[in-house]
């Protein structure tokens, strides 16, 4: 099963050590085939909203920055608990903050 882990932005700035640890973590998970895709997201982005026939496009940044997503990882695991364990390892590396783990259905 696949899970998407999204991470909220945090205030702590990443340092050398974090980069190194994260690089190793990503490499390990990729080799094991657990990590299918990962990436960081630009703050804000573009909002596309539809209402009736009308579609409006708005440029960020937006006020609810705390709810935004700063990064994601798509993992393939055998159970929800394994996905949580991956998130746990990730959080241990990045320090204070929040991540959300959701199962992905399809393709």
């Amino acid at each position: 099963m696949r899970y998407l882990m999204t991470t909220r932005p945090s205030d702590t700035a990443p340092d050398e050590k974090l980069y190194a640890e994260m690089g190793k973590f990503i490499e390990e998970l990729t080799a094991a085939g657990v990590l299918l895709a990962t990436g960081g997201l630009e703050p804000g982005g573009v909002l596309v909203r539809s209402a009736g026939d009308e579609i409006t496009v708005t440029d960020g940044p937006f006020t609810e920055a705390k709810e935004a997503v700063a990064g994601f990882a798509l993992v393939e695991v055998r159970s929800k608990e394994e996905a949580i364990e991956m998130a746990r390892r990730f959080r241990r590396i990045v320090g204070d903050g929040e991540s959300v783990v959701q199962q992905v259905f399809g393709p």
Binding site: R78, S79, K80, E81, E82, I84, E85
Partner: peptide
């Protein structure tokens, strides 16, 4: 229990 088995499998 499920956490233990998940970690075990890994």
């Amino acid at each position: 229990h499920r956490t233990v088995t998940a970690v075990w499998k890994l």
